[in-house]
Amino acid sequence: MSELVFVGLFAMLVLTAIAAIRLTDLFAVVIMFSVYSLLAASLFVAMDAVDVAFTEAAVGAGVSTILMLATLVLTDRWEKPRKNKALLPLVVVSITGAVLLYGTLDMPDLGDQNAPIHQHVAKRYLSDSGHEIGVPNVVTSILASYRGYDTFGELIVIFTAGVGVMSLLGGRRKKKKVENNDT
């Protein structure tokens, strides 16, 4: 049953991704991206990652999409076709993809409960977090306690992004002059 859901969602993800490449109306591309995020979120739910799904929906389909739309309002809606279609990107992408495929050949199967990833650290979290932390949601336990330091880092990343956006866009309100201090 879940296999079928996976396959269906994957197929739709592929379709949206291809659509996002081909479209030149950036408005439509952003919407495609939003759909892509929602599909990914659904996939995450199907894969038992509810927290991630929640976040992906809120961030990908929510915050990112809004920001992208706002940017489109301020920039251009249509992508210009490039003068020269370079072959290089295709080559780079093909090589990268091939290397990745090669890498998957020795990976454990999907859903294999004996895969190393489930055996070592994660096993302990599942078995011990209940009495060590006392919080049912293991994701929260790991996020805020076992790997709380990573989360601190994550918070700092958001803070950095905020500082960055404020320094780039803040300060000069409603001025739309084209700067050209080119010295």
């Binding site: 990976m107 454990p108 190393p116 990833i117 070592h120 650290v121």
Partner: peptide, 10 residues
């Protein structure tokens, strides 16, 4: 991620 998948640790 690949390392994590084969070793189960970070």
């Amino acid at each position: 991620g690949f390392l994590f998948i084969v070793t189960g640790t970070l």
